[in-house]
Simulated scan of single mutants.
Amino acid sequence: MAVQVQGVVARSKGAPVTLETIVVPDPGPGEARVKVLACGVCHTDLHYREGAINDEFPFLLGHEAAGVVESVGPDVTDVAPGDYVILNWRAVCGNCRACLRGRPQYCFSTFNATQKMTLLDGTELSPALGIGAFAEMTLVAAGQCTKVDPAAPPEVAGLLGCGVMAGLGAAINTGNVGRGDTVAVIGCGGVGDAAIAGSLLAGARTIIAVDIDDRKLETAKKFGATHTVNSRTVDAVEAIREATGGFGADVVIEAIGRPETYEQAFYARDLAGTVVLVGVPDPSMRIELPLIEFFGRGGALKSSWYGDCLPSRDFPMLIDLYLQGRLPLGDFVSETIGIGDVEAAFEKMHHGDVLRSVVVMGS
């Protein structure tokens, strides 16, 4: 039987979000219905509200979530009612050219629930990243549910569903940061700080945090930054070179998505170094660099898609590291809020007042 729950909806571009009654159908073949316990407020949700991703309004926002499987549809075998899961937006297909070549972390044909959740009047909703978890219950493809140890609190575990995984993976998976490497991270929001934490976990010896906000630079130290650079007052490229013996960093992670900071990343790396773009640019942005510099510097220029993660591999491992005290996921949570407080959380995010606001259902 379909259920009616409360959910956060963006009805039109730029309009404040509203709390609406959502109709969540019974799961069909390959689908799971999940009781959401907690969901982080991510910049991507704000991008949806602002129409920066597409114009398929109304959107059911929220995607960085943990919860418990309530029911499953026919042919679902990997998860069952009662399973504690993190929701992901990379439900790999197993059949595309990436999957068949043994690279499921690049799956080119990820999938979502087939059925649509709706408003009471039957209006179909577009769930953010195929999840829609600012709701007491949501419908997803069963492959979007990744079982993890229930000892991890949902407000912490859910963060791996998007931003924290993107940053950790940008360092560990895409950048291949290793023991003794030097790393610079440009942009110290949630994704950037996760890249710093990932670099520390991977054994980097020097980790340089770059931002224009001294508050964010102080926070970056908690996650493992050994040096901080306020690029509003000093030349970031020169400061990164100075902190790395004059050479530049082995890996530079750009966590903002702007041409000017990407150019800083490009010139701040050592010869044969790696640049990782994990910040999401505006589609209108362009960059121009001398082609001889691409040739002369060598190395690699990479984009990180969801931290190049494989949820079934990475989520349980990272939760285990958190439970062992080796990964400070709890430090990303600035505040916990109720489902009616998402619009206020967007405002705090815009002003840089929080690292992550997390909606806890029932609070």
Rank of each mutant, 00 (worst) to 15 (best):
A152M: 13
G203K: 12
G248T: 00
G338Q: 02
K116N: 13
L46S: 10
T219E: 13
V251D: 03
G187Q: 06
Y106W: 08
A166G: 12
H350P: 00
R90I: 13
E263C: 02
T123Q: 09
G299Q: 13
V72G: 02
S284L: 14
I292H: 15
A142S: 14
L168T: 07
C188M: 11
Q115K: 15
K302D: 08
A272L: 14
I53R: 12
I240F: 10
A135R: 05
A166S: 15
L125S: 01
G30L: 04
D45E: 11
R258T: 09
S363E: 10
L355D: 02
A197D: 01
L318M: 12
V354K: 03
G307H: 06
S71N: 11
V234Q: 10
P74E: 10
Q115M: 05
Y262Q: 11
L310W: 10
T226H: 07
C309M: 14
A133S: 13
G189L: 10
R313H: 12
A113S: 13
F266T: 01
P74W: 06
W305E: 10
M137G: 00
T219L: 13
D193S: 12
Q4K: 15
L125M: 04
A345F: 02
H43Q: 11
A300M: 15
E335F: 01
E343F: 04
F111D: 06
A202E: 01
D331P: 01
V8A: 07
M361C: 00
G40P: 09
T206S: 10
E31R: 08
A344H: 08
G94W: 11
C42M: 07
D213K: 15
V342L: 03
Y106F: 12
A32T: 05
K216N: 03
P283C: 11
G245A: 02
G62Y: 07
V358W: 03
A91W: 06
P283N: 12
C39V: 04
C93V: 06
V191H: 10
C107T: 01
V229P: 04
T77H: 11
F59T: 00
I131H: 04
E263Y: 03
D213R: 15
L159E: 03
G28D: 08
T18K: 15
A220N: 04
L200Q: 15
M285Q: 09
S126N: 12
G189R: 10
V234P: 03
Q4V: 11
M361Y: 01
E242D: 14
H227S: 03
G330D: 15
V17F: 15
N230Y: 12
I22A: 12
A91Y: 07
C39N: 11
E293A: 12
E64H: 04
Q105N: 13
Q144E: 05
D83W: 05
G273D: 07
E254I: 02
N230R: 08
G340K: 06
S363K: 14
I86M: 00
T228L: 05
A345E: 01
V275S: 08
A32N: 06
G224M: 06
L60V: 00
N88P: 02
G273R: 04
V191G: 09
K302I: 08
D331F: 02
A113H: 08
I212S: 05
Y84H: 06
G178V: 01
V280M: 15
Q105D: 11
I292R: 13
T44V: 02
E343L: 02
L119A: 06
G192L: 07
L120F: 00
L60S: 00
T118C: 09
Y84R: 02
R356F: 06
E288V: 08
V278H: 10
T118I: 04
A151Y: 05
A2I: 03
V185L: 09
